[in-house]
Simulated assay, not measured.
Amino acid sequence: MVRVKVMAAALTGLLAVSTLAGCGGGGDSGSGGGKDDGKLVLGFSQVGAESGWRTANTKSIQDAAAAAGYELKFSDAQGKQEKQIEAIRSFITQKVDVIAFSPVVTSGWDSVLKDAKDAGIPVILTDRAVDSQDKSLYKTFLGSDFVKEGKEAGDWLVKQNEGKTDPVNVVELQGTVGAAPAIDRQKGFAEAIKANPNIKIVKSQSGNFTRAEGKTVMEGILQSTPDIDVLYAHNDDMGLGAIEAIEAAGKKPGKDIQIITVDAVKDGMQALADGKINFIVECSPLLGPQLMDLAKKVKAGETVDPRILTEETTFTQEQAKAALPDRKY
């Protein structure tokens, strides 16, 4: 009889523990089923390492994850969408808590994002958007307003030529074909320069966001298009590569050809301070802290804004000189 009572008490205790565990004491709560040790597991797929901006962006994310005490599973897509999709599928298989990625291109993500949604893993877009019509496939998009960046570049050029009637021939070095920054920076710039019909884009070609291709493409353009007044590059690295080509052709960057770029990485800012670039629109890569905060919120099931902008500015030569000593990237 005593043995029966002891067994009954033990069974009651086991049932009580089971009931507590089922009330949210340690399950994954539909958040993706990462390690049940209280540490958030974040899977992040990076575009690649095509520029100084991207390197700074990667470091910001890695440093912020370490500071937050998160486990970061990091993957470099090397500029290839298929590698990025493979990485995201791997994160789903590993049952991470949150997936974040900076899309190589805008299209072709619905299938893998639906798999993540079906697995109960929230997704955050960083730096670049996707063109999916189903906005429920991701929780939020953290990054810059690329259209605004292009518009700010164009507005500066329009202001510089206010009251002038001479034609202004612009060469545009675009980013990676199909990438959100390239599409939007082209759009914003084109909209802005409509304010002055004398400003014309005479040549537009992709430099794939890299310094090497920026140089190579500009070398070809200088041979085929001798009358160039302005270069608008979608990022600093392409602009810096183009500067090498311009100097090799015996021209003075910043004087013979005005140069406008986007990003404001240290090398670009130095070129601006030296007068080789005339104007830079900032696009901050330091998204790490904001991303970690968002990852924590979406894992907890909190509602977040579907679009979160980063704070940025623009730089002239004098502003670049003032900002350079404290520049972090």
Score class of each variant (00 low, 15 high):
Gly33Cys: 14
Ala320Trp: 03
Lys194Phe: 04
Ala195Gly: 11
Ala56Lys: 12
Trp53Leu: 06
Lys59His: 08
Ile308Gly: 05
Ile246Gly: 12
Thr310Ala: 13
Pro122His: 08
Asp97Tyr: 03
Gly48Ser: 15
Gly250Ala: 10
Glu219Met: 06
Glu172Trp: 00
Asp127Arg: 02
Ala153Ile: 08
Ser45Gly: 15
Lys73Thr: 05
Met269Gly: 07
Thr210Asn: 09
Ser90Tyr: 00
Gly163Lys: 14
Val171Lys: 03
Thr140Asp: 13
Lys139Ala: 15
Arg307Thr: 13
Gly120Ser: 09
Val96Asn: 04
Gly143Cys: 11
Ala245Gln: 11
Phe141Ala: 13
Ser132Lys: 09
Val304Gly: 08
Gln46Tyr: 04
Val96Gln: 06
Lys80Thr: 04
Ile99Ala: 06
Asp127Val: 08
Gln78Leu: 11
Val96Lys: 07
Val171Asp: 00
Ala64Tyr: 04
Leu157Phe: 02
Lys200Ser: 12
Gln205Ala: 08
Gly79Tyr: 07
Gln94Leu: 12
Phe146Trp: 09
Ser224Cys: 02
Thr261Met: 08
Gly120His: 04
Val202Met: 04
Gly38Ala: 11
Thr165Trp: 01
Ser51Pro: 05
Lys139Arg: 14
Ser102Val: 02
Lys117Cys: 06
Gly239Arg: 03
Lys252Cys: 01
Ile260Pro: 02
Ser18Asp: 03
Tyr138Thr: 00
Gly207Ala: 14
Ala16Gly: 04
Val41Ile: 06
Asn169Cys: 05
Glu71Arg: 12
Gln160His: 05
Thr225Ser: 09
Arg307Cys: 00
Lys203Leu: 00
Asp326Trp: 00
Val4Leu: 13
Pro226Ala: 08
Tyr232Gly: 05
Gly154Lys: 05
Ala8Ser: 10
Leu14His: 02
Asp267Tyr: 00
Lys276Glu: 13
Val123Leu: 04
Lys297Tyr: 02
Gly48Pro: 04
Val202Glu: 03
Gln317Cys: 00
Ala64Phe: 07
Gly241Arg: 09
Lys187Leu: 14
Val265Phe: 01
Gln160Lys: 14
Ser90Ile: 03
Cys23Leu: 15
Asp263Pro: 02
Pro167Gln: 09
Phe209Ser: 01
Gly220Val: 07
Gly163Leu: 06
Asp97Gln: 10
